[in-house]
């Protein structure tokens, strides 16, 4: 890991902890981001964390860009020694795989795809070495995923699969981004899963759709009344495959305010995870039992 500092114009410092994605880089970026926040540096207006990087926005009328960067660099040693443990939550997200809406959309944008003859799922299954779409879907939802970034558009989570690197699913993004993606589409691009929080442009391969609202500017959805954005970095997600009937039932329940997401409080410890992924994941998922 080699941390690289750069300026985004005269109002941002961009800190890339590592060029490649890993949970180690995520935790170092998180610790450094927290150290910057705790230092209360005058002129800082916002800190945005990403997967293996973060960005500090500042007012250069208050602090010079060089001084801003120097103050962040001073904190680097703290971050490397930082705890790689997080008190967080695991959330069950229902997903209707091979749904009609993402299917209609992916057929509409076939000429922008690597493999116009196959669906996104057929293509992803093949290039990741799975014999069938069913086996691929099983691998996709079998183990939990870690929210390593929230952003792009309002409240959209990027998720990192909690399995050995050689087992991680990886797919390219569409050759040219689509101009349309259904709201709540579950997909993947590079090694990152995502849930599209709103309808709009997108380049990730589309696998299914969740009936759960994850961004609600009106704050009328029962579990979004405190804040309009559902996810935060560090959240852990367990996908749960559902059928059309279950999808319709949950969607209606979200609408009438009777739906409560299944959530359990857990601790994620990176060292324990690296030492034994299978049993760490099993423990995380067990926490959902009885919720």
């Amino acid at each position: 890991m080699k941390t690289r500092y750069s300026f985004g114009g005269d109002e941002h410092v961009y800190v890339e902890v590592d060029e490649e994605m890993s949970l180690e880089a995520f935790f170092v970026a998180l610790s450094l981001r927290n150290a910057v926040a705790e230092a209360n540096i005058p002129g800082v207006t916002e800190i945005c964390p990403a997967n293996a990087s973060f960005e500090v926005r500042f007012n250069p009328d208050v602090i010079s860009p060089d001084e801003m960067m120097a103050r962040i660099k001073e904190l680097e040693h703290k971050a490397e020694a930082g705890e790689k443990r997080l008190d967080t939550r695991i959330i069950e997200i229902p997903v209707y795989f091979q749904d009609p809406w993402t299917h209609e959309t992916l057929m509409r944008f076939r000429e922008r795809h690597q493999d116009p003859e196959a669906t996104d799922l057929e293509y992803a299954a093949r290039i990741n070495g799975y014999d069938s779409v069913e086996a691929f879907i099983e691998a996709f939802h079998g183990q939990p995923w870690f929210v390593s970034m929230v952003g792009f558009v309002a409240g959209l989570p990027f998720l990192y699969q909690l399995v050995e690197r050689e087992k991680q699913i990886e797919v390219p993004k569409y050759l040219r981004p689509r101009t349309d993606t259904p709201k709540h589409t579950v997909g993947i691009g590079g090694c990152f899963g995502c849930i599209y929080s709103v309808r709009g442009a997108g380049g990730y391969q589309m696998f299914g759709i969740t009936p759960m609202t994850i961004f609600d500017p009106t704050q009328t959805v029962s579990y979004l009344q405190d804040f309009m954005v559902f996810f935060k970095p560090g959240d852990i997600v367990k996908w749960k495959p559902i059928d059309r009937a279950e999808f319709d039932r949950i969607e209606a329940a979200v609408k009438d305010g009777s739906y409560t997401p299944r959530i359990a409080q857990v601790t994620f410890d990176l060292e324990a995870f690296n030492a034994d992924m299978a049993s760490t994941n099993a423990k995380l998922m067990e926490a959902l039992n009885g919720v």
Partner: peptide, 21 residues
């Protein structure tokens, strides 16, 4: 290409964007 970035040379591991970038 670094792990997680995607195969195109213009791809990076998803990071933050600056206004004006």
């Amino acid at each position: 290409q670094p792990f997680g970035a995607g195969s195109d040379p213009s791809n990076i591991v998803d990071g933050c964007y600056s206004y004006g970038s």
